[in-house]
């Protein structure tokens, strides 16, 4: 049985669709990554999982429990670490954890043992008895993670957990997360950082415009694409005409699958090729035409290429496209009760 089963989730805010038929299966004790640009619907999906938001239609099963019918049982099984950390500045970290433990009805002794244990694991000893208002972003995130883990949930849901974190906090969080999965906790983590998902997730889904567009293990997704990626620059700054000329020159070569002129990056060329020997063929061809090579970088396909293949744009372009459209005020209202 899957730990999370989402079926045909739909959710719209006014006439803006956030989720458009989202399907997702997360197995037990799995580190699952949800990758997508800002505005793809990740946060909406996680808020529905956390029972903070009801979908317009669709089904949500968590650990065999229907989240729409029995949200309280789901809340007991689930730890949710939101993106925007809401803390009480006046309380100390320990007091906040005590409050959280009481809201989950932990018996007093167990509550305090769990708190001490998590303070140790997340290296919070030095500052946990200071007021939360004095914490840095990394401290807040660690405190929030501890709060989400107090009742030892079977499923931990993390919304962009390491955005803007210092290296020490990120390392502490990553290590604890890996340990949790080893001990049988399922983790669903959303991120728009490829590196984060790649480093942590056993399985992943790429989500775009409110639906899943690719699903599998990070390795599997990359291998399915096949070929090597090459970025080629003739000069530091080429012009359009020259880029097109080179593109036409390289396209017919054997082993070159695809050539795209990247306008956004000074008319460099992005190629997909069959393997190492093709690079030599390309160099000889350019040489024969008297063209220089300012830079040539070759790499295995990355998750960004998976995203590019599925959507026709890079993750970064997608981010930039939505950056201007986001209405932060509107989003805040949506999350306000």
């Amino acid at each position: 049985m899957a730990l999370i089963e989402l079926r045909q989730l739909n959710k719209a805010y006014g006439d803006v669709s956030a989720l458009a038929g989202l399907d997702l299966d997360v197995p037990e004790a799995c580190f699952y990554g949800l990758l997508g640009p800002n505005g793809a619907g990740k946060t909406t999906a996680l808020r529905i999982l956390a029972t903070l938001l009801a979908p317009d239609s669709g089904q949500v099963q968590i650990d065999g429990v229907d989240a729409l019918k029995d949200p309280r049982s789901v809340r007991r099984r689930l730890g949710y670490v939101a993106q925007e950390v809401a803390i009480d500045k006046i309380l100390t970290g320990r007091e906040l954890l005590q409050l959280q433990g009481d809201l989950f009805h932990l018996p007093r002794r167990l509550r305090d043992e769990q708190i001490d244990d998590l303070i140790d694991r997340l290296a919070m000893n030095e500052w946990v008895d200071r007021r939360c208002g004095t914490y840095s972003g990394g401290m807040r995130r660690r405190l929030d993670l501890a709060a989400g883990l107090l009742h030892r949930p079977k499923l931990l849901v993390l919304d962009e957990p390491t955005v803007g974190l210092d290296i020490e906090s990120r390392a502490a969080i990553w290590e604890l997360l890996r340990e949790l999965v080893r001990d049988g906790t399922g983790i669903l983590l959303s991120s728009h950082y490829l590196e984060e998902v790649e480093a942590l997730a056993d399985r992943m889904a790429i989500i775009d415009a409110g639906r899943v567009i690719a699903e599998g293990t990070p390795e599997g997704l990359k291998q399915r694409l096949g070929g090597d990626r090459v970025t080629l620059r003739i000069r530091e700054f080429s012009d359009a005409a020259e880029a097109e000329r080179v593109s036409a020159l390289l396209q017919p070569l054997e082993g070159v699958q695809q050539v795209v002129v990247n306008r956004a990056q000074g008319f460099s060329l992005n190629l997909v090729i069959d393997g190492d020997p093709v690079v030599e063929t390309m160099r000889r061809c350019l040489d024969a035409e008297g063209l220089p090579v300012f830079a040539l970088a070759q790499s295995r396909p990355s998750l960004d290429d998976v995203y590019l293949q599925a959507t026709g744009r890079t993750l970064m372009d997608a981010e930039l496209a939505v950056a201007g459209q986001r209405d932060v005020k509107q989003e805040r209202r949506q999350s306000m009760r």
Partner: peptide, 21 residues
Amino acid sequence: MTSSPLKAAPSLDTDRGALSE
């Protein structure tokens, strides 16, 4: 950091009665 396994989920099945909760 400690490496002992995290304790098994204690809250899943604690149901201590409505009034006490």
